[in-house]
Design a protein around this nucleic acid. Structure first.
Lengths: 77, 77
DNA sequence: TATATTATAGGCATATTTGCCTATTTTTAA
DNA sequence: TTAAAAATAGGCAAATATGCCTATAATATA
């Protein structure tokens, strides 16, 4: 499998996040509140619109209690 | 162990990156060239000055061939 | 269906990152 | 110890992310 370009990566990352968030029973709003960022940002991250910070990713993985690796897994869905 | 605040996290992340980069025999310049960003940014990331993007982190882990998890490992050194 | 909840869309001002640059300091190797 | 290589420091403009906001669309539930 070819490497993904940055845009493709961000979309894959967003899909992984959405899947993880739902599997943990969080709404975007709950996740945003837990880590202290805007709900609109969660929406944009999940849709691959923005390239968020490593700090936010760390906070997200802690809040959801998912492995970082799971969010970076570049599996085609 | 307590959770790290964002500043502490960025410093730990930077240390992990530096360790990984050196263990793979890369200079900051080589790494920067490989992923297409500025060497000054690598320096700032390693020193915990900036909160770089998830896209850059992905590119770094690919260039160095290290697991994402390794960069996020919050071990005290 | 209709009502509430959840998610998307986008504008705008502010904050932060990034690239480009020069200079200086630190580390490595001869 | 000296020279070369590597890393740090910081200024500045441009690009991008973020917070705050309102409105709309989509989804779930009564």
């Amino acid at each position: 499998m070819e490497y993904l370009n940055e845009k493709e990566f961000l979309i894959a990352f967003g899909k992984n996040l959405r899947k993880a968030r739902k599997s943990k029973g969080f709404t975007q709003s709950q996740l945003a509140n837990d880590i202290g960022i805007e709900i609109s940002q969660i929406s944009r991250i999940e849709r691959g619109i923005i390239n968020t910070s490593v700090g936010n990713v760390n906070a997200i993985s802690r809040a959801l209690r998912v492995d970082i690796q799971e969010l970076f897994n570049l599996i085609k869905n």
